[in-house]
Amino acid sequence: MSGEALLRLEDLEVSYGNIAALKGVSLEVAKGEVVCILGANGAGKTTTMRTISRLLRPRAGRILFHGEDITQVPAHKVVHLGISHSPEGRRVFGILTVEENLWLGAFTEKRVDKERLRWVYELFPRLEERRKQLAGTLSGGEQQMLAIGRSLMSRPELLLLDEPSLGIAPILVRSIFERIREIAGEGVTVLLVEQNARAALKLADRGYVLDVGTIALEGSSADLLASEKVQEAYLGKKG
């Protein structure tokens, strides 16, 4: 990794009540990178993402963006800084139309950028076909496209994607990963959480492996793909 980190987590500790979910997580994402976080269920991946976008408050540690401490910035202001979060489970506004969801994605903008909307529709033509349809009536894959599209509307510098392949037909998964590659190609830095380790590592430059609240492993995607530990635990190659 080269240059100053765009995003930097320093010893983040987060707990739910008495239960520690993150026990000192540090990681870095440089501008223009695609970085993935792998880990088993309950490892703390979603917690990490929700802490970066400040839906959760860390008990200790710091979040730096462009070198500035944003640990105390309230959630709704984080978007203004250029961090956009497409959450686990998509969380689209089901009783609003596709287009209204996209407009809300641009809430931080003075007016909806037509070119941006054009770009999102080009990335996901299915969304344009269904723009007047209620988001809750879309298929799971389409909702995922909408969640990603919506998070692009604020013109983020850093995009947080939490399990974009969750519960989606395999054929769509590939297409969604291609779109993420395209988004990164436009200069958006991506921090990606995935269960689908192989696809994620093929896409990412680097990766971190989270294990019950701590970083167990980190390295370039090639190194992680070759690592025995990762192969055993996440790529389904036993022994």
Binding site: S53, L55, H76, S84, P87, F93, L104, F107
Partner: peptide, 24 residues
Amino acid sequence: TRMGAAIRASAIDQDAARLMGINV
């Protein structure tokens, strides 16, 4: 209106609304 949309979004999912930059 934009603010009206923010109200509707907050009624549906407060956390998701925050992620849009809405001050719930």
